[in-house]
């Protein structure tokens, strides 16, 4: 179990580094691919909703803390745990469909992630984006992430199989990712 948490921490750190340092070089119409969301979707699709929620929360919180002071801390955490939950639920319906379905889920989840973030940001007065800009961003980032999704989802699937969780024991046996002891 320790190995699994270490694996996810490593995945998250790598994703954050790639997202902040490498991805900005390759923007499309000013929008950047969202590697962090892709890792959330990847792990949620491999493991199901509980992992999606926890990893999504941790990834979102880390993103918030690495953003500037104008970013509301907790906003990305809320968005990404929702995305992780949704992607985890989608796994049930993908069952036997070919891999392409996963990539479509990843693209849709990325668009959802950006849309949620934009709309919540407006509602909480954290940023002033227009609805048109958010729609454009959802389209661009959704397609961009759809193209990139095999690069992230396939290795993550392999990793998740290499470090399996304990689905039988359910949520209670899986420690959260802040190094706290499991909730008994």
């Amino acid at each position: 179990m320790v190995a699994r948490v270490t694996m996810m921490t490593a995945v998250l750190l790598t994703a954050l580094l790639v997202q902040t340092v490498v991805v900005p070089t390759f923007d499309v119409l000013g929008w950047r691919a969202d590697v962090v969301t892709l890792t959330v979707v990847g792990l949620a699709l491999a493991d199901g909703p509980p992992t999606g929620i926890r990893y999504g929360f941790a990834a979102g919180l880390a993103s918030d803390l690495l953003s500037g002071a104008t970013q509301l801390v907790g906003l990305s955490a809320l968005v990404l745990l929702t995305v992780g939950y949704a992607a985890g639920l989608a796994r049930r319906y993908l069952g036997s469909t070919p891999l392409g379905g996963q990539f479509l889920v990843a693209g849709a989840a990325s668009a959802l992630s950006l849309g949620l973030h934009g709309v919540l940001g407006i509602l909480l007065d954290a940023q002033q984006s227009s609805g048109g800009a958010i729609l454009q961003g959802m389209l661009v980032v959704g397609l961009y992430n759809l193209v990139l999704s095999p690069l992230v989802l396939l290795p993550l699937g392999t990793l998740a199989r290499r470090f399996p969780g304990n689905p039988a024991a359910g949520a209670s046996a899986t420690p959260s990712y802040h190094g706290r002891p499991p909730r008994a």
Binding site: T20, R32, Q71, G118, Q127
Partner: peptide, 14 residues
């Protein structure tokens, strides 16, 4: 410029 923020609605650099 070392890094940019991880989310799309944040316009800042490190």
């Amino acid at each position: 410029v070392v890094a940019q923020p991880p989310n799309a609605f944040e316009w800042s650099v490190l």
